[in-house]
């Protein structure tokens, strides 16, 4: 058991945790080491993410063919679907970090969970809004309470709940614990989102892409895949940058605290 404060101090003084705790997992999950690995790759990752996202978005908006049935409205797919996938994968990452946090009490997992939350919530919001804007011209309504739409709205609320819970405690440690439990309990929502369109009648159409193939014509599938890769990399870059910033912020405050103690 260690408190966040001591974790911050350890990071500040150098990387002692690699020595005090064994295992390959801890080797890579050490905040100081994470910062040293991440900082040099971040600009490159950011550039590639931006390039892919812009390519996918422009391709989908202006160059992909209109759909035989939905016409141009189907273009919303190229932002809606990537946002939806990123929201769900982001939540899976949040849950994984929560699991590491609860079982191994690892400080980097706590920081990662805290920083994933707002980014994931943002992507979920984009998914919901773009979906509503897609629904109006095709279905004839912005919103219905079918199983797919409702379960994605629940995902959004899980993210919001996690954001509030992690930051809502006097003691950081307790906030992380509570947030992690919420995040893990919410994992049951992920298979519900994915399979809702198969298990129940929904207004939302079925999944176009599965492990066995896709029902999207290649000239529309390629921009979708590029856009998806772009969104995933954007998410990764944003989260890594936020974790890096959080590590430095903690280091700064622990150094400040140490110098205040010295002066006193």
């Amino acid at each position: 058991m260690q408190s966040m404060h001591s974790a911050g101090e350890r990071t500040a003084r150098g990387n002692l945790s690699g020595r005090t705790q064994g295992g390959w997992l801890h080797y890579f999950a050490n905040p100081g080491r994470f910062a040293r690995f991440t900082r040099p790759i971040l600009p490159w990752l950011g550039a590639v993410s931006a390039l892919l996202a812009v390519t996918g978005i422009v391709w989908g908006y202006a160059f992909a063919p209109a759909d035989f049935q939905q016409g141009d409205a189907a273009r919303i797919m190229y932002v809606h679907v990537p946002a939806a996938w990123v929201s769900m994968s982001g939540y899976a990452m949040l849950a994984l970090c929560s699991f590491f946090s609860l079982v191994w009490r690892h400080p980097l997992a706590d920081i990662a969970a805290e920083e994933i939350g707002p980014v994931g919530a943002g992507f979920t919001f984009v998914c919901l809004v773009s979906g509503a804007l897609w629904g109006r011209p095709t279905w004839g309504t912005y919103w219905v309470w079918d199983a797919r739409l409702t379960s994605v709205l629940i995902l959004f609320f899980l993210y919001l709940g996690h954001i509030a819970l992690v930051r809502g405690f006097e003691s950081r440690e307790r906030g992380y614990r509570a947030g992690a439990i919420l995040a893990l309990a919410g994992v049951v929502n992920l298979p519900i989102i994915v399979f809702s369109v198969q298990w129940w009648n929904t207004l939302h159409q079925g999944n176009s892409i599965s492990f066995t193939g896709s029902s999207i014509y290649p000239s529309m599938l390629y921009p979708l895949l590029v856009s998806t890769l772009g969104f995933y990399l954007c998410f990764l870059t944003l989260v890594l940058a936020r974790i890096l910033a959080a590590i430095m912020e903690r280091k700064t405050s622990s150094l400040l605290l140490a110098s205040a103690e010295r002066d006193a």
């Binding site: 063919p65 209109a66 759909d67 035989f68 049935q69 939905q70 189907a74 797919m77 095709t138 279905w139 004839g140 309504t141 219905v144 207004l203 159409q205 079925g206 999944n207 176009s208 029902s215 999207i216 014509y217 000239s219 529309m220």
Partner: peptide
């Protein structure tokens, strides 16, 4: 109220034709 439910197949119009 009548809402349209569309399929999960996407293709260009010329391909459909």
């Amino acid at each position: 109220e009548v809402l349209a439910k569309h399929g999960s197949t996407y293709m260009p119009r010329d391909v459909a034709q």
